[in-house]
């Protein structure tokens, strides 16, 4: 009787109802948001490299900052794009915003409205930075941008004025006129396409911000030096916010990140313990 009931417990622990897991996930997400634990966040190697890379961009450089992200990826990538844009605005560089995902242009516009470059950084639209808009043609559009920026982005996004009427565009024709490239990206088109059309043919230094799940795919390009540095996932975004001295949304989400990870690990451990207990009992009985 005791043996049967104990076997029942282990079997039950191997098949906990999904709804119980979902409910507990809700609890561990909401609880730290309502009463933060404020666990310390250490800075990792990758975030430090990305910070140093952006920080070392020399004055007067022309930086393409591409918003290749979707609304769906916004919770994870949004803090990175805001932090990177802030970091660039603090420097004396020319910023060329563009997008190869349809939602990217709107997100870039939201970042402009959030950071207010004129009020907070003393920058002038069309002189220090410009929003070139969205190019819907993916990799072909990147090739087009490399060959002739005015064909890829005929008018700017903010005023719908011809791009060549802005001061910032003086002496700019194609990829060879830009010095750096940064892409915050959700998927395809993203870094492999930029590497094929911009990095290999023109040798432009390139860094990215990516989703946490994209990390394995970034590895070969990073190791080959085609991607100089990268941040991936909410943890890296929080570390980068710390490094630029502007803790924001990503930092606020670090506690739920911890609690949810712990919950997943706890469930994986429960499942495995139950599995081994059931197996050993079955093995012992036979």
């Amino acid at each position: 009787m005791t043996k049967a009931s104990s076997e029942g417990i282990w079997e039950k622990l191997q098949s906990i109802d999904s709804r119980v897991i979902y409910l507990l996930m809700w609890v561990v997400v909401l609880w730290p948001l309502m009463s933060p634990i404020n666990l310390p966040v250490g800075v990792g190697r990758q975030s430090k490299e990305y910070f140093e890379w952006v920080d070392s961009i020399p004055d007067g450089s022309k930086v393409v900052f591409s918003y290749d992200l979707s609304f769906a990826g916004l919770p994870e990538l949004g803090p990175m794009s805001v932090a990177t844009f802030h970091h660039l605005l603090e420097k004396d560089v020319k910023i060329y915003l563009c997008a190869y995902w349809n939602s990217g242009a709107d997100i870039a516009q939201d970042d402009i409205e959030l950071l207010k470059p004129e009020e907070n950084y003393g920058k002038v639209y069309g002189v220090d930075y410009i929003h070139m808009g969205y190019n819907p043609r993916g990799e072909t559009g990147m090739t087009q941008f490399a060959a002739d920026v005015y064909k890829a982005f005929p008018n700017d996004f903010v005023n719908n004025r011809p791009l060549d009427t802005y001061e910032i565009m003086e002496g700019v024709h194609g990829a060879e006129d830009f010095d750096y490239l940064i892409s915050i990206e959700s998927g395809t088109p993203g870094s492999p396409e930029w590497v094929r059309q911009w990095i290999e043919p023109y040798g432009i230094p390139f860094s990215i911000g990516a989703l946490g799940v994209s990390v394995p795919g970034v590895a070969p390009y990073y190791n080959a030096g085609q991607i100089k540095s990268f941040i991936a996932g909410l943890r890296s975004a929080a570390e980068y916010e710390m490094l630029i001295g502007r803790p924001d949304v990503a930092m606020a989400q670090q506690d739920p990140l911890s609690t949810t990870h712990i919950l997943v690990i706890a469930f994986v451990a429960i499942g495995n313990i139950a599995y081994f207990c059931t197996r050993s009992k079955k093995g012992g009985g036979s």
């Binding site: 250490g42 943890r235 990870h261 997943v264 690990i265």
Partner: peptide, 10 residues
């Protein structure tokens, strides 16, 4: 997972 969550590195 533990390296990605602040609790793990703490």
């Amino acid at each position: 997972m533990l390296a990605n969550a602040p609790v793990g590195t703490s």
